[in-house]
């Protein structure tokens, strides 16, 4: 029976893949596949050994690293929002501890026109794939994947020894692979935008890994999580004490394998009586485009996106509504 799996159009769901595997004709293997479908939540919703919180020293690029700058009234300037989602689910071949991970990744730019958001470029980018350490899977299962014409993305690097590993380590490898695929989709879209458009793009997360887009004056990255806090000297106390519509001094971030960007912290909402990270975001722009005045201007753009609030998302104090719209849109399309 012909496979119904078509990787060329972005892959397919777990259900369709399992059906294809079951129906695949493998010479000498009449037993059929036996893969346990997980009942639990997606891997992204389970506790993971995340990077431990840390302070990262950063190079200040404004004269007084402890200065607080009022950025002024919000200004609406962003023309579009870029975000991606990922959902990974682990499956276990019967009697085997080596996990197979089915990952769904998607990214979209939602362009704003007349205060309403529409998908830019005609369609989002969606990709689905299996990730597993191929060398650790049973040859019979791999043959069945081949017979069903379902590719497996190998999570082991070339030259890695096919030794038995802790299943959770294997899961982490797969999850990283899924995340990398999502980032690639986001980079692709960001580059398309900066190559063809002239208006600012609000990017969810940092832009240092956004390829050509990281150097574009159009890209503005907004980071909501703060497991890594960039500080210059005594600036940590300044950051946590920022008042609404105020920013910290800017600093430079130089990742080893990514582009250098200029960044600063910006308080979107009044945090009195709340935790120090309430309404706190870190903004990134291309290093070459940085001036203090531009940092203030971009901050005003970001401030304008406080409304409407992104409730009921738990991250509403730092999440722009356009980014929430991207996520809701992609979830509706992918069923993730």
């Amino acid at each position: 029976m012909a496979s119904t799996y078509d990787f060329a159009v972005g892959g397919t769901s777990i259900r369709d893949a399992l059906r294809a595997l079951k129906n695949a004709s493998v010479p000498g293997d009449e037993s059929g596949s036996s893969i346990v479908t997980p009942a639990g939540p997606a891997l992204e919703l389970t506790p993971a050994d995340a990077t431990p919180p840390r302070l990262e020293p950063a190079e200040p690029i404004e004269s007084d690293p402890t200065a607080v700058r009022e950025v002024g009234e919000p200004v609406v300037a962003f023309a579009a929002f870029l975000d991606g989602i990922q959902t990974s689910r682990a499956l276990y071949p019967d009697g085997d501890s080596t996990p197979l991970v089915h990952g769904t990744v998607a990214a979209v730019i939602r362009q704003r026109a007349d205060r309403a958001l529409h998908t830019w470029g005609g369609a989002p980018l969606i990709s689905r794939a299996f990730h597993a350490p191929v060398a650790l899977l049973s040859p019979r299962l791999v043959a069945r994947f081949h017979a069903a014409n379902i590719p497996i993305e190998d999570t082991l690097e070339p030259g890695d020894a096919p030794d038995a590993r802790h299943p959770m380590e294997l899961l982490a490898l797969a999850r990283n692979a899924v995340q990398r695929r999502r980032e690639l989709l986001e980079i692709e879209l960001a580059e398309r935008w900066t190559d063809s458009e002239t208006a600012p793009l609000f990017v969810d997360g940092g832009i240092s890994g956004a390829g050509r887009a990281s150097q574009s004056v159009l890209s503005v990255g907004v980071v909501k999580s703060h497991r890594t806090l960039y500080t210059a000297g005594e600036s940590l106390a300044v950051i946590t004490a920022l008042k609404a519509a105020a920013r910290s001094a800017a600093f430079e971030i130089r990742p080893k394998y990514r582009s250098t960007v200029a960044s600063w912290y910006l308080r979107l909402r009044d945090a009195r009586g709340r935790d120090p990270f309430f309404g706190l975001v870190r903004v990134e722009i291309a290093r070459e485009s940085f001036t203090s005045a531009r940092a203030d201007e971009v901050s005003r753009w970001v401030l304008a996106e406080r409304s409407p609030v992104s409730l009921p998302d738990k991250r509403w104090s730092t999440m722009a509504y356009g980014i929430r719209d991207c996520e809701e849109y992609l979830r509706a399309l992918t069923g993730a």
Binding site: R115, A116, A304, S307, Y321, G322
Partner: peptide, 16 residues
């Protein structure tokens, strides 16, 4: 919450 309890506040959200 989005309007900080003020019906007349923040009249022009950039996105509907």
């Amino acid at each position: 919450l989005g309007y900080d309890g003020e019906p007349g506040g923040d009249p022009g959200a950039p996105t509907r």
